[in-house]
Design a protein around this nucleic acid. Structure first.
Lengths: 237, 237
DNA sequence: ACATCGAAGATTGCATACAATTTGGACGAT
DNA sequence: ATCGTCCAAATTGTATGCAATCTTCGATGT
């Protein structure tokens, strides 16, 4: 586990440190700095962030609830290693929820929001044009953030929380089963969705969102590893 | 806090006791034995279930994540007291998710499942015909269980978890803002949904589900208490 | 009489100590 | 040489103790 954010986050948490740790680990997981299957021992996490096992444990418990971490009794916590079936469930869920989020966002979006989205899209584009694994991670993160911004604008805190979970799990799934660079076309689709939103065309925005999710899932390689079953256990250790 | 399940659950939990406590408190909350706003002190919960504050705290933390409990720093945990706005968000979320669950269930439902649903509906009917607050509680519980069974049949564990949360929150909302006996018509609607499902008519089943959710929400009295704002504080203590 | 300040009690936040369980390896038997 | 058993190291599960914070109630002064 090589997370260098340690100091930054330790000092930036005057209260609710377990929440800060959760956030740090979350980012590390969706950034792929922590690979699926990695063991997250309470002692190690505690040492990294300079806290006791108690608060480290609380952070891991939160991540377990989000599905980003799997804990086995008396064995410890591991970064989740979603099966192809779980992957499909993630995208099936997103197909249900995101059109609703788009519809909600359509009604509440403000010019300032649109401005924010434009900046976000610029950020995405910037990372796409950069080279190296760090840029790649930032690109994935930024791509997810677009969907989260949409959820935040939609004004439904519950759906927003669900999307938080789904986007994070999507990152894990893409890390495991992703085939190509994913987002070169994803960026264009984000842009198209925003355009439709700006023009008040909710139908079109929702349809674009569905297609976008389809494209992301289509880029995954879910079929092959499905039959093995025990391969999970192998790559887990 | 008068939960008499103490002994039952304490002995039935050879492992993962915090999970059992979470379940017990969850049931107590959706059964309305624990009213919204009730304080759940760590020491009290621990004493009731004969465990240390550590495990009681873990259970409360889980409930906090589900939104059934709200914790304020250095103040403690309280049974959630959802605002009318939160209530609307709950039902907006259900309107998005449940049609998808119905569609998923349609594809995977087996004759055994249908048999199980019929028994569940009988259970509902039985409680409706009984008198007394206990029967009323059981009725509400059974009504929620129908939706959870549907989610379980749909085969999407993620959506199932979301529904778990949404149904529980719905119970809270109904407890706070419910007007009438709610489910006398709800039962008939459940039955109609099952019929449509059995006939393979997914469109109709989804439409019935939407109407069903509309009816539940329409029975709430969300407008009036909205303006007060400080009433929360009053009923909280 | 009212308001303000202060101290005691209670409750949460966190760290640490101990018990229980699992894991890995070493030793010995076949 | 291989398999089985047992012991030790490591890790999690749980309890408890102490510090920090909030609440409550009373005293004091205006």
């Amino acid at each position: 586990m090589n997370i260098s954010d340690k100091i930054i986050l330790a000092e930036a948490a005057p209260e609710d440190r377990s929440l800060a740790i959760r956030e740090a680990l979350r980012n590390a997981i969706i950034d792929r700095r922590l690979a699926p299957g990695t063991k997250l021992s309470e002692a190690e996490v505690g040492a990294l962030f300079d806290v006791s096992r108690t608060v480290a444990r609380a952070a891991l418990q939160m991540l377990t609830f989000e599905g980003l971490v799997k804990t086995e009794r008396n064995r410890g916590a591991f970064v989740s290693h979603p099966s192809p079936d779980e992957a499909r469930q993630v995208f099936a869920s997103r197909r249900l929820i995101e059109p609703g989020i788009v519809a909600g966002a359509l009604e509440r979006i403000t010019p300032q929001d649109i401005e924010g989205f434009r900046r976000q899209l610029d950020e995405e584009a910037r990372h796409i044009n950069e080279r190296g694994p760090a840029a790649r991670r930032a690109e994935i993160k930024a791509s997810g953030d677009f969907h989260l911004m949409l959820a935040s604008v939609s004004g439904n805190a519950i759906l927003q929380k669900f999307m938080d979970e789904l986007v994070a799990r999507s990152s894990l799934v893409i890390a495991l089963y992703g085939r190509s660079g994913v987002s070169s076309c994803g960026h264009a689709e984000h842009s198209a969705i925003l355009d439709a939103l700006e023009n008040g065309d909710g139908k079109r925005a929702s349809a674009l969102m569905i297609h976008h999710i389809d494209h992301i899932e289509a880029d995954l390689d879910l079929q092959l590893k499905q039959g093995l079953g025990l391969k999970d256990a192998l790559s887990l250790s």
